[in-house]
């Protein structure tokens, strides 16, 4: 081959390579997916669409899907929100099975009732659809992973926080919510074990109630009348503070209170000094972490751990502003404006 011809071929090959590279770069810039890109449909079945904590989880899931689709050109992650309006485990089970029929690639579910949902989860898995649980587990099912708190540790932490506030001495009561809820039972067990480590702490209870603000407040009042020397409350959930009733009825500092949950409506209790510490749940991550885990398993083919422990965030007067802004960033629209600028 003569030299000019060779140079022409090399130049042509070089330009072809450059054109291909340019095409890739242009596609990258405009966000165009290659033709062989795979769409991953992830169905989200949370407990209740009317509960803001699950709206926050939805925002987390959608943001994670967008980030992952941007990061990996060969996948397009789509979130299919199939959460019932109100809590209904049967409805959740139906929606899981419908999603499988519709060809979903993976399911993430927060179980309203594990016994009802275990069968649906197992059916989905049997048909080749991986399921991950979040917030509330179905431990006996064939789900591949769970993201949520370690309930026993949560209960322990509530008591340790309270004991520190009481300098390790005084009578405390445990508010336990629904007696049949397995997660709450574990929290109570953890709380009792932690209390046993403080010789100066005397525990009364645990006290259970229907999980509404009114029922919780009513139980609180009854216990406080029965135990006039009560110094503090270890609450496994923040039920009494979902209403404003106690704002006028409790004096700040009279009882030391530590409770799980720190939702926007509850923040006023920290501000007024009625509640000392809330242990907030990062609800945005309920959506974010399962989506990331599913993509890791499905697209990258990586081994994933069975349990992702959710870390609770301590909320007290000094970080009220920071927590309020964090809640807003996680999609809560009802965060009181006065806390955002603190």
């Amino acid at each position: 081959m003569n030299k000019p011809k060779l140079i022409r071929y090399i130049a042509f090959a070089g330009m072809a390579v450059l054109a291909l590279a340019c095409q890739d770069i242009t596609d990258e810039l405009v966000g165009k997916k290659p033709d062989d890109a795979q769409t991953i449909h992830i169905t989200v079945v949370a407990k209740s669409a009317s509960n803001p904590v699950f709206q926050s989880a939805r925002i987390g899931a959608e943001a994670a899907a967008e980030d992952l689709s941007e990061k990996y050109s060969k996948i397009d992650v789509q979130i299919d929100w199939r959460t019932p309006k109100e809590e209904d485990p049967r409805e959740q089970a139906d929606r899981i099975l419908n999603a499988v029929e519709d060809g979903t690639d993976a399911i993430m579910v927060s179980c309203s009732d594990d016994s009802t949902l275990t069968a649906a989860i197992n059916q989905a898995v049997a048909r080749g659809v991986p399921v991950m649980t979040f917030d509330s587990d179905a431990a006996g099912s064939n789900r591949f992973a769970f993201y949520g708190p370690n309930d026993a540790e949560t209960g322990e932490r509530v008591v340790h926080e309270l004991a520190a506030l009481l300098n390790g001495a005084g009578q405390i009561a445990i508010l336990g919510g629904n007696k049949n809820a397995p997660n709450l039972q574990k929290r109570v067990e953890g709380a009792l074990q932690a209390a046993a480590k403080y010789p100066g702490i005397e525990v009364v209870g645990p006290f259970y109630h229907v999980e509404t603000a009114e029922a919780a407040i009513s139980e609180m009042k009854r216990v406080q009348n029965q135990y006039p020397d009560l110094k503090g409350w270890a609450m496994m959930g923040g039920w009494p503070f979902f209403s404003e009733t106690l704002l006028d009825e409790m004096s700040p500092g009279k009882l030391r209170i530590v409770a799980v949950d720190a939702l926007p409506v509850q923040l006023v209790y920290i501000d007024r000094g009625i509640v000392d510490v809330f242990l907030g749940q990062p609800t945005y991550r309920w959506g974010e972490i399962p989506v990331q885990t599913i993509v890791k398993k499905l697209h990258l083919g990586e081994e994933v751990p069975e349990f992702y422990q959710m870390k609770l965030i301590r909320v007290w007067k000094d970080n009220l502003g920071g927590w309020a802004r964090q809640l807003r960033a996680w999609g809560y629209s009802d965060v009181p404006v006065e806390y955002l600028s603190r």
């Binding site: 990062p282 870390k311 965030i313 009220l320 502003g321 920071g322 927590w323 603190r342």
Partner: peptide, 12 residues
Amino acid sequence: VEMGGAQTATTF
């Protein structure tokens, strides 16, 4: 870093 946006006012 575990606290995310919920750092204390003193830290900020």
